[in-house]
Design a binder for these strands. Structure first.
Lengths: 230, 230
DNA sequence: CGCCATCTTGACACAATATTGACGCCTTTT
DNA sequence: AAAAGGCGTCAATATTGTGTCAAGATGGCG
């Protein structure tokens, strides 16, 4: 077992439930952090670096499944979803969005603790940095913000997805196929003109001179990669 | 997505439940194996090499939790426990014994499939990366990166393919024919000048002095090989 | 219904790569 | 020692891949 205490993030808008979970978790040796809505939850993952997240489905600002999906864009943190809803559809949606478990309220504390042990016992993946930064390019994956040379850049959803994939594999060559699959989904493997147009648009927005790209480098015949070195 | 079908082992002593699970799993693209008791289950894991196991708690010869514990002595196969018992103590015992999830009967097939996807997606992830390295030449086949003496080298698609073939048969002599077939495809067996030009270009990029190659060695009259020894 | 932003498609200029041919060197053979 | 064949390099041309622009299609939203 690890020497240092494990860190748990509790996300629930009800004060009573947060209190109850804090008490139970603290008694079981966790350090507890709290968030009351989806936005705060994403920030807290960045700030507090929890090892596990306990997420209520019904949040005021966004759906718990949405929070899960957003988080899975850049984090592998184990997520246990709690919900009063026992509908199969909700469970499937949350689990397929990336949640690791789904518990229906009311539940026993012992069961929750056992399920936390299950998700925690798998070897921790090295977590990628929630904020990527090289030279003058900053990509805040948690907030979906992109800043170049001090200025915030407005990207379309496709452009952002493309940049996100490049950034989460920074330095590595991504083939046309890989990029098309990860951004457009299966069945777009051949549509390389989509990639060309969007890479071009992205470069217009983040490169100083798109004819001499500093960040998005073409690997002719293969794909693209985000350059890390100077 | 994986090309080959995933293999599921169903362990239950009730014929009706095995039938039901076989139908559902087959419909979802799994290859299904069956066992009716704990002893058979352990044998089946060895013999059938399933990717995931669905285990009923109430077995005639030994308890499902025992099966889980025995299995965990040597296997990491994901285990989803099914049970009619909704007692918290049973759940905790099974999960702590090494089960990955616990579903109480009756359950929806959709939920079972979603939970199977959850346990399978983490097993699918850790993929060993084939990286070839010898002295000062590193070829990362997964990322398509080539580094020589600390510097990354830009190769054209043909040059990379050629190097890839040499590297995957490192140390062995590859005939002109073999190389032409593997890089250019069938019908190019006679075009050995293609090979000469590309070997030359490749040497310019990776050898210190292409007149005295250290890596790509000519076997006169036969072909080329990638040298392993110093 | 029409506006807006975004996505997709097609056309074209330009860049990178592949192929070909020419030539000289080296090794082996006679 | 000369000839022949295999090999390596260079440079030219052919082919393919890539970047950009702009027009048309799509879809969300008031």
């Amino acid at each position: 077992m690890s020497e240092t205490q494990l860190r748990a993030l509790v996300v629930d808008d009800e004060r009573a439930i947060r209190r109850f979970l804090r008490t139970s978790l603290t008694a079981n040796g966790y350090v507890v952090f709290e968030a009351t809505n989806g936005g705060e939850a994403l920030e807290a993952v960045v700030r507090d670096r929890p090892d596990v997240m306990i997420l209520d489905l019904g949040l005021p600002d966004m759906d718990g499944t949405q929070v899960t999906a957003r988080l899975r864009e850049w984090s592998h943190i184990p997520i246990i979803v709690l919900s009063v809803r026992d509908q199969e559809g909700d469970k499937i949606a949350a689990l397929d969005a990336g949640a690791d478990d789904y518990l229906t309220k009311p539940f026993g504390v012992g069961e929750l603790m056992a399920r936390m042990r299950v998700v925690l016992r798998r070897v921790a993946h090295p977590e990628p940095e929630p904020v990527f930064a090289t030279r003058d390019l900053v990509v805040d994956l948690a907030r979906r913000l992109v800043r170049v040379r001090g200025h915030e850049v407005q990207l379309t959803p496709t452009e952002y997805d493309l940049l996100r994939v490049l950034v989460t594999h920074a330095g590595k060559v991504l083939t046309h196929q890989q990029l098309l699959r990860q951004v457009w989904g299966l069945g777009y493997e051949g549509e390389s003109h989509l990639l060309r147009v969007n890479i071009s648009n992205l470069r217009q927005k983040i490169e100083r001179n798109s004819a001499r790209p500093e960040y998005i480098i073409t690997e002719p015949g293969v794909g693209y990669r985000l350059r890390l070195e100077i």
